[in-house]
Write a protein that binds this DNA or RNA. Structure first.
Lengths: 207, 207
DNA sequence: TGGTGTGAAATACTTCACAGCA
DNA sequence: TGCTGTGAAGTATTTCACACCA
């Protein structure tokens, strides 16, 4: 039960399981065994049982796991049963794509504050939200209860934006700018970088 | 030297090192020690030395690593010294963001084929490239030398697109649709899913 | 019978600590 | 002296194999 004992890798796999289970549920299956789930995600069944066992016993011997309660439990473990509000900085191509990303506005994530530094855009409404001046980031974030900031600005501006988000009291950042952000201990950064993903691919594609 | 012996985790870190080294180079530093690099990426210096040692000895004892050759070597290891052409399927919000992503058109990645299934868009030019009908994916990809396909279409269409890319002879896929793609053994899939990244964050943000 | 839950074994990865070289 | 390169020790994760139960 103690978080410290749960392998990082296990936590990383939970969203993957969740995606599969949701599909299984849509197909009308009520239960699923570890081997069936294992097939769907190309892994060994033991790994799945081990992973799930860290959080309790939801399986029935001889049958498998009930899909619906399992989904609910994983969502709970990942804190996806709570509502999360987000601050988005940068409404260029990436920012706009995020705002219209369907998996977002339904679900537990919602954009609450939007920032940009382009005078043409500041003050306008996008997706029903007013775009604020980037210089107000720390102030407005501080006044809100937002815990997650998304950085979708050009590289050289990312450092400053991260800094402002941190001063606003954010505790997690998703960074689309391909630069390394150095943040205080309490602030987790997730880096999304297509070049990185592509590098992993190219490494494996030539043997 | 044999790839099989190189830890997956090590390969995953190489793009991160590359990002930092490029920044170091821009700042005019000629050499860097493992401890300096370690600081920049918040890791232990031994890990960096170990990582680099899998690919040979580029360091000078008492001095550190020469930045330029190190960058060149890592790019070579990741096969970033070759030119890669890409097929993009889906020119919606995500697709457009990718086309205008600056780290792409310079560098070794280039979009060569673009597909969509919207009759309004098919035949038009985007970023100087004609948009083809999605039904032609497997044919056109087969005729090209493209090895990497990027899927940026709505979820339910992703399966079919993946199928067509595979039949076209692709060997790597980057999938932006939050669904699990089951592909043959020779085809690597990288899943980019903001919900997943956010889940990893939300897990850690509540203790 | 069929599939979970789990210690124990096997494997993978990280960290330590130090020999050896510029 | 300072920093790399690396075996060896330490930790984390995965896989095995089987007791146990619906």
């Amino acid at each position: 039960m103690k978080k410290a004992e749960i392998p990082k890798e296990t936590v990383n796999r939970l969203p993957l399981y969740l995606r599969c289970l949701n599909r299984i549920l849509l197909r009308g299956h009520k239960t699923i065994s570890s081997s069936e789930l294992a097939n769907l995600v190309s892994m060994g069944p033991a790994k799945i049982r081990k992973d799930l066992s860290y959080f309790g016993k939801f399986g029935t011997r001889g049958v498998g796991y009930e899909v619906k309660p399992l989904i609910a439990r994983i969502r709970e473990i990942l804190n996806l049963d709570k509502n999360w509000t987000l601050a988005l900085v940068g409404v260029g191509n990436v920012g706009s794509a995020l705002l219209s990303y369907p998996g977002f506005n339904r679900g537990c994530f919602k954009f609450e504050l939007i920032f940009d530094d382009d005078p043409e855009i500041i003050g306008k409404e996008i997706s029903g939200k007013k775009v604020h001046d980037s210089s107000e980031i720390s102030d407005l974030v501080k006044k809100s209860s937002i815990k997650i900031g998304i950085i979708a600005v050009p590289n050289e501006k990312a450092y400053d934006v991260a800094d402002q988000l941190v001063r606003g009291g954010i505790s997690g950042i998703i960074n689309f700018a391909p630069v390394y952000l150095d943040t205080p201990d309490g602030v987790k950064v997730y880096q999304i970088d297509l070049s990185t993903e592509l590098s992993s691919l190219t490494y494996h594609l030539v043997s």
